[in-house]
């Protein structure tokens, strides 16, 4: 019954086409792996030093004011702003690590410690890579990760992608926006900088160029714990000197954000293990780099899809040559078994 056309041969031909597809994938123009991006040289950021933080929440209040966000309540009576986590209307929050009797500040056992939660402004942000409509963008000069609600479609892929859980969506709104820290970029034209750093009484939150902040962070790590040292406040890279004397903390010897995901523009120092204060371990290669390497290896210049489409068209043309889907000519050969 398989006289005029040998289905087996045709099947093999199909396989050849498929093999060609596979080969095309294998020897596809070796798209160079997308390297993890580094911070721009003039990148702006913050340095948060948990040992200096006194938990006054001035930064939380100032952030709300600067971004015109309403208070959020987690208590039965809505008395004052008590968000439990950052949200689409709370861009900055001081959380508290607590352990045992909570006697000593910055002690891991039987202690407590404060940690600021806000956008880290990654050198290679996952949210920017994830956003399908360029609503999340990274400024080439300042490196600030910016959000544009006019472009946003509200797919929340940025929310899912961010390893710090920073972009947040307004689920309670019929046409919600994403909310996240943008380093008060809307206030720079008035000569202001990040409100959280502006008001911080202890300089626990310090604003400046990330390069300067990193040097400052490393200086602090080298200090003898408990020794008196000078600590700048406000804006490290300009503005009046507001530095003061205080005691050096017992730091964990790591600047969080130095290498995580290729580095972040917001850096953190802590006396308590970073994972315990909610800063996840992250490898030096950004997930965005992995994702875009895959994306561009597969679709770079549409090379592979075109090659595959060619092979598929060739195969389909042979097999659909008699109007393959016509209802009536059987479309193909006998199916007798």
């Amino acid at each position: 019954m398989r006289a005029d056309e040998n289905p087996r041969r045709n099947f093999l031909k199909g396989c050849v086409a498929a093999g060609g597809v596979a080969a095309a994938s294998a020897v596809a123009p070796p798209v160079a792996a997308r390297e993890t991006r580094q911070r721009p040289p003039e990148a702006l950021g913050l340095l948060f030093d948990a040992t200096l933080c006194v938990g006054c929440k001035a930064c939380v209040a100032a952030c709300k004011q600067a971004n015109e966000n309403p208070a959020e309540f987690s208590t039965v009576d809505p008395l004052w702003d008590t968000p439990l986590d950052t949200s689409a209307r709370t861009y900055n929050l001081i959380k508290m690590y607590r352990h045992g009797t909570m006697e000593t500040k910055d002690a891991e056992t039987n202690g407590y410690a404060f940690m600021k939660t806000s956008c880290m402004h990654c050198a290679d942000p996952s949210c920017v890579s994830a956003c399908p409509v360029s609503a999340m963008t990274k400024d080439a000069a300042t490196g600030i990760v910016e959000y544009n609600p006019e472009a946003c479609i509200g797919c929340r892929y940025c929310v899912a992608a961010c390893p710090f859980g920073i972009p947040k969506y307004q689920y309670d709104s019929a046409y919600g926006k994403i909310g996240k820290c943008e380093l008060c970029r809307h206030r720079t034209k008035d000569g202001h900088y990040s409100a959280c750093a502006e008001v911080c009484p202890t300089g626990a939150t310090l604003y400046g160029k990330t390069a300067d902040l990193l040097a400052e962070a490393k200086r602090r790590l080298a200090l003898k714990p408990g020794s008196i040292a000078r600590f700048p406040r406000g804006n490290l890279s300009g503005g009046p000197d507001q530095s003061y004397e205080a005691y050096a903390g017992t730091y964990k010897q790591h600047v969080y954000g130095d290498t995580e995901y290729g580095g972040t523009q917001v850096l953190k120092l802590s006396a308590v293990d970073f994972e315990k204060v909610g800063m996840p371990y992250l490898p030096p290669e950004a997930a965005a780099a992995h994702s875009e390497t895959l994306q561009h290896t597969l679709y770079g210049g549409l090379a592979m899809p075109v090659v595959v489409l060619g092979a598929l068209t060739w195969a389909a043309r042979r097999n659909v040559h008699r109007g393959g889907d016509s209802n009536g000519d059987g479309g193909s050969k006998e199916g007798e078994k």
Partner: peptide, 12 residues
């Protein structure tokens, strides 16, 4: 299966 691997018998 039908069009690329030419297994027309599956057409239905």
């Amino acid at each position: 299966l039908v069009y690329i691997f030419n297994r027309g018998e599956y057409h239905p």
